[in-house]
Amino acid sequence: MSTSQHLSSTRPPGPSQADRQLLTELYRTHGSRVYSRCLYLLRDKEEARDAMQEVFIKVQRNLAEFRGEASPLTWMTRIATNHCLNLIRAKRAAWHDKYKREVETGEHTKSLGPTLKENQQLLQLALAKVEPAVAEAAIYYFVDEMTQAEICQLVGLSAPTLRKRLREFIDVAREEIKKAVPGIEFQEAPI
């Protein structure tokens, strides 16, 4: 049974009680994913909790759309991602400094993974440097591990446009990682 069906069939009458019931169900079914996305991007538990609350309020206000979604998980992940990217867009330089400090003081540069996907904290250095649309595509690809076809369907992009955005992100990420990890080398994927 999908979450949307479940929600519509169990929502009790009475606005206040109904809102509380709905929030409780959303919290149980999607809370950890939304929080996890907010925490990944905002790097601060208080800010992530604030952002998560905003995401749930948006869902409450767009309940009809939520119920019509074939994949509530995808929909909520997207709302959370865009909400956080909008916060980052407002103060890009400050966010970049924050990510940079975290990389410098953390262990991320001491235990590098062999692929970009396995170095997600380092990828954040590029998130605050690119346009939100590019960052959004990169998050779905590198963090959520969606296929390009899944991203195209979700965002409504053509495959060439998506690849262009991902390449732009990879180029910026390369430069940022080079600065953070002197001596690092990159190699193209083997054919």
Binding site: P114, T115, I184, A189
Partner: peptide, 18 residues
Amino acid sequence: TRITLPDLDAAELGPSGF
């Protein structure tokens, strides 16, 4: 000390993590 970049043109085998 080497990071391999993804090949965006390669065929993607499902199912994806998502």
